[in-house]
Amino acid sequence: MWLFNSSIGRKLIMSVTGIALVLFVTFHGCMNVVALISGEAYNTICTLLGSNWYAIAATTGLAALVVIHIIYAFILTVQNRKARGNNKYAVTDKPEKVEWASQNMLVLGIIVVLGLLLHLFNFWYNMMFAEIIGNPMQGGFEPTDGFSYMKQTFGNPIFSCLYIIWLVAIWFHLTHGMWSAMQTLGLSGHVWFNRWKCIGQVWSTIIIALFLLVVLAFWFCPDCVGQCDFKLLPFAVK
């Protein structure tokens, strides 16, 4: 099968899983902003997702995407190390055009995975997982009370700092990953290269800024976040 045994096929797997993950991160970022406006509305989303079959199915799909993306990252890296050979250059001069992120995607990816594990421990373990195993209060709050878990997590400066490092790594990873995914799909060229690069930079900056905003707001101003009355919001279900 060409997807698995050709170099472009393997890159295509990285590209498609990467794009799917970017879309998920975008959805997640938008969802988080709700917590800044109304804690009640945010918890409504948490309840809607919870441990319902569709949320579990989507989470399983998402986990599969992450695992495939990571496995192929390692397969590609091992093959590329082998192709490079054992002899290293004594002197290397990095051309200006070459972005730092593009040459350090694996390292950035590893930081992203470590951050992801912390994130799963802070939230998923106490929310979806707690509901699945039938121990809803294991984290101290209701499993659908995502808002309280956010306050608890980001109230801890160590966690907040780790999340900020994590977000910066994701930003670097995405600034290269987004245009690179389009390039691999062949949807690039002399004109579209610059467009994808710009779209990728703007997109990843907005998404990561939203995540950062949430962390910083919950860290420094826990009393002013999520105070709007859900019933007064225009989209509220009456």
């Binding site: 051309p95 972005e99 593009s102």
Partner: peptide
Amino acid sequence: VAKMDELGFGNCTNTRACEA
């Protein structure tokens, strides 16, 4: 592409060092 892979060249990760 099949020949390039067979000869052991690596997978492109779009670093752009080549065009530079």
